[in-house]
Design a protein around this nucleic acid. Structure first.
Lengths: 340, 340
DNA sequence: AGCAACATACAAAACGTTTTGCAAAGGAAC
DNA sequence: GTTCCTTTGCAAAACGTTTTGTATGTTGCT
């Protein structure tokens, strides 16, 4: 047990050649060897605890069965886990393993990490960001099949997957309008990113469908944090003509809105309804009452990226896709009909 | 550019043998080749964009330069990112890459994943849990150097690293007592895990040092969630003789305490001080006022685990260690002297 | 001049697979 | 009984490195 058992040991123990063992175990080539022999070899291999060395087979086949995942800030966002998990599940189902590297915001380091992945002969790379943004993909990745995850690539030659931001905004509008609200404000992210534009556009479209629209004074923007949300909500809810519902760019801003409401003596959802985006369990489930919010599909995006990557590996000519994954509504208790 | 450049191409281009190229590039063996030749070879290699194939060198050296990280539920906890990041940073600094696998709670799957890692000839494995718990390490890992991360192994033959739970409790007591509090309650986790025992013991020790002690009626336990914290805090703060400060098992329970206080018309920190454990940015920074809390050292634990693993790889006889990493206090605004 | 010692470069083997091409043996068809 | 398949197995080459042992000069010393 001290030393590892290799294909030669199996061959010796089974009394056949190395070639025969390889064929017997290969599924595709097992027709080249007698069925009884196959049985025998498999039994022997099992007894010996033989497991093929992937380094060797990767070298021989020019296929490492490893996928690289390079992302930006795994640390600071709670989404990373779900994304990685989705990717890893899909990879594992198809006999692949995931190598994760993370570069923070250091571009030079990111290139180094990518080169390291390539030295390990990864079969493909997933280039991930932690929130939907425009991104320019490093030259280095030309050499390897690549999928862009949760970001919009400048290079349309690469497949990508992002959340359906528009749909999220639309659903939020739908939810609030059907609850009976007419005076709805949006607290948006002040940053110039697809997520902000998309959610706003979707929200407007949703209102539109019901013959409503978002007045300019009911659209405010702030830093996408609890504080940003709180300040914006404080301002909105202190007005004479205050909205009866708030659609917040994300759950953190929604948490700020709760705080603002509490500070002003308003209750959620009786006095003001609140909707977020992200479905951060920690917040959405932790708030009291629970926050209704649109879930960002990080797990699904991770899965999709890996599946698409494997697909392009099989079939290099497969058309590049730009997928939008829906953001399902997770209803809790933060929405109620407006009073009176 | 279509096809990869290998050491043979470099040799040809530089007009020397493959052996010489290998020696020239090897640092350890570069003494075996003329300094001028080394220069020349490096230049040629750089021009050609040569990067050694790690599959091949791993095969030859019996050293893949890959570390495996197997964890339980990456998805549901926001700590995973920091842990992975710490591990990956340390690995990357030493020329290694990290393969991450995740098994949820499925033991059978976990074994499969471990076997997959071993097939890829990982040099060592980090067996991680997402919170400090007793854990029995799978037999399979006997074959590979292993470090246990954020868990206490039943097998003392393996090095491990956990947060200094005791120290966290102690610091919390210190903080509250020096702020002037005398009536301090603790809201603990009801689960029977080292984290709960350690934090409580440390908290008691800290009080002790100041001649105080924790009365039985000021120790309550609940589910380690916002709801659990809220319920416990509601009960505690509704009493005639209510505590002036709360030490909560984690930040989520502390968030619940904030909600309870708000519900009862009490203000943090004027009417009640609150201290948590975890330093979950999302919560600790998001709460209003900010939550003072002991940071769980996930990043550092990840780093430590990899460094120790590399150390044991270098020197297999190195003594096994059981490390406790301190949990530094992160002060925000949730602690003030008691009124009156 | 002769010999050791050294500097420099190379050929070949090995790591553990997979796959191609070939050989031996057995059976069927004439 | 010869020819021709078919079945079953094997030997050998290849993937891209690293390292050991050896060969060829070159230098320094007596």
């Amino acid at each position: 047990m001290a030393t590892k058992v290799n294909i030669r040991d199996v061959a010796k123990a089974a009394g056949v050649s190395v070639t025969t063992v390889s064929h017997a175990l290969s599924e595709a080539h097992s027709s080249r060897v007698n069925a009884r022999t196959v049985e025998h070899i498999k039994a022997v291999a099992g007894d010996l605890g033989y497991a093929p060395n992937r380094l060797a087979s990767g070298l021989r086949n020019q296929r490492s069965q490893i996928l690289g995942l390079v992302s930006d800030e795994i640390t600071t966002t709670p989404f990373a886990g779900a994304m990685i998990q989705g990717a890893q599940d899909a990879a594992s189902e198809h006999g692949h393993l995931l190598m994760v590297v993370n570069s923070g915001l250091d571009n030079e380091l990111e290139l180094q990490e990518i080169r390291a992945l390539q030295q390990h002969q990864v079969d493909g790379i997933i280039f991930a960001r932690m929130f939907n943004q425009q991104v320019s993909v490093p030259e280095e990745l030309r050499a390897v099949p690549t999928i862009v995850l949760d970001a919009t690539p400048d290079n349309p030659g690469l497949s990508s997957v992002v959340p359906d931001e528009f749909g999220a905004g639309d659903s939020a509008a739908e939810l609030l309008v059907t609850a009976g609200h007419r005076n709805i404000a949006m607290i948006n992210n002040e940053d110039d990113i697809p997520a902000a534009h998309g959610r706003l556009a979707g929200f407007r479209a949703g209102l539109d469908r019901h013959g409503l629209h978002l007045p300019a004074e009911f659209l405010v923007a702030g830093h996408p944090s609890t504080t940003g949300g709180r300040e914006a909500a404080l301002e909105l809810l202190s007005r004479k003509e205050r909205p009866t519902a708030l659609f917040c760019f994300n759950d953190q801003m929604a948490m700020g809105a709760y705080q603002a409401a509490g500070h002003l003596g308003l209750r959620v959802p009786e006095d003001v309804s609140v909707v977020g985006v992200d479905n951060l369990e920690l917040i959405a489930d932790g708030l009291w009452p629970g926050l209704s919010t649109m879930a960002l599909p990080h797990y699904e995006m991770g899965r999709w990226a890996v599946l698409k990557l494997l697909n392009e590996l099989e079939n290099p000519e497969a058309p590049r896709l730009h997928e939008k994954i829906p953001c399902p509504l997770v209803e809790r208790e933060s929405v109620a009909p407006p009073k009176g």
